[in-house]
Design a protein around this nucleic acid. Sequence first.
DNA 1: ACAAATATTTAGTTATATCTAAAAATATAT
DNA 2: ATATATTTTTAGATATAACTAAATATTTGT
Lengths: 218, 218
Amino acid sequence: MLSFSEENYLKAIYHIEKLQSNGVSTNAVAEKMDTKASSVTDMLQKLAEKRLVIYKKYKGALLSAKGKEIAISVIRKHRLWESFLVNKLNFSWDEVHDIAEQLEHIQSDELINRLDAYLGFPKVDPHGDPIPDKDGNIAKQEKIKLSNLKETQQGILVTIKDSSDDFLRYLDKKSISIGSTIKVIAIEPFDKSILVKIGKKELMITENVANNLLVKEI
Amino acid sequence: MLSFSEENYLKAIYHIEKLQSNGVSTNAVAEKMDTKASSVTDMLQKLAEKRLVIYKKYKGALLSAKGKEIAISVIRKHRLWESFLVNKLNFSWDEVHDIAEQLEHIQSDELINRLDAYLGFPKVDPHGDPIPDKDGNIAKQEKIKLSNLKETQQGILVTIKDSSDDFLRYLDKKSISIGSTIKVIAIEPFDKSILVKIGKKELMITENVANNLLVKEI
DNA sequence: ACAAATATTTAGTTATATCTAAAAATATAT
DNA sequence: ATATATTTTTAGATATAACTAAATATTTGT
């Protein structure tokens, strides 16, 4: 059985792999895990020994099939627990991350499969991210950045890329949440800021904000 | 913040304290935790340093007010999670212990209080044990051993003292479960075995079994 | 009361997961 | 292409929570 720490490393590597197709660098993992590069090297060596990553000195790491399977199972647990917290315990979607970070390490396949059933086999979590099924299959999502929409197009907000507290608070203040329908009214050519309509209100957002809002086009 | 291990020690000491009013011995803790006496000594010294137990060399340990508070909060979490697993996810009450042992260490007051509300503020868990409230108050339960009942008396099974797998399987096979109404038909003077009636069936149980079934007299 | 048995503690070891500082490899820039 | 900068690894240290073996304290039985 793996430690919390090992599971967290596998999860981090998985997420980084999805962004860059090449090997995952020590530094990238260190940044994601908020730890030191030397600690990452130690852990990569250990995970390589356990055949969970393929690791070449100075060349970074990639998940093995087994490592990927474990990473996905942790992500499945994380997203199902987030769904539980929001849908059953009425947390708001920006409060649940830290608790789900703990719950994702609970070991019991039976538990997580029953939780899945109890929630009605949800396809996406409260942030709009897809929930892997029992066999590790993940439904592909057509998500594009809000900044890729053209004037008059609209989308449903499905994912927040930057999940820093500051950004989550900003969204909350502006009443922007997962599921919101957002229409692009006008794009300012000078700084790419965007005038959008959310519900009945019009709002100006920066390009940076628009890059961190992923929508499903409708 | 305390480690899982520290929390488990506090919980073990709490349970042992309830049985013997004097100081909790190193050996008693070692047996309960399935570890070595020397490991217990190490931990008691650490917990004493953190003012969570009062510890005197060779004299055993007692929980401080703070230590007791933490122990009770862990027990509250354990019992609420067991209630969730049984009442919402349809686990049977003999399957939930190991999962609850993990869930009891999740850190979030908000989570546990919302879970409590979601479950309807239950007073007892699926084993019949009382659930401490948010402030650490535990309702007293009038529980007596089935072996203390006299002929013709009856009780509702509220707690299983011995929770070994073998015993739980025995009870399952005999269809004895928390909430069962048990009537004492006759007591054999020779070996104190008891003829009981559970539902419509009569059944002979040994004194040992009767000592491990705690009932609320009705 | 004292020897034997039992319980407890101490000392020293191991494994995990982290860190800092220094060394080594790789990438970059002129 | 070579010096400089960056990245990565190694070596050595720390903290936690276990363990074993040996030492010490307490309890028990005669």
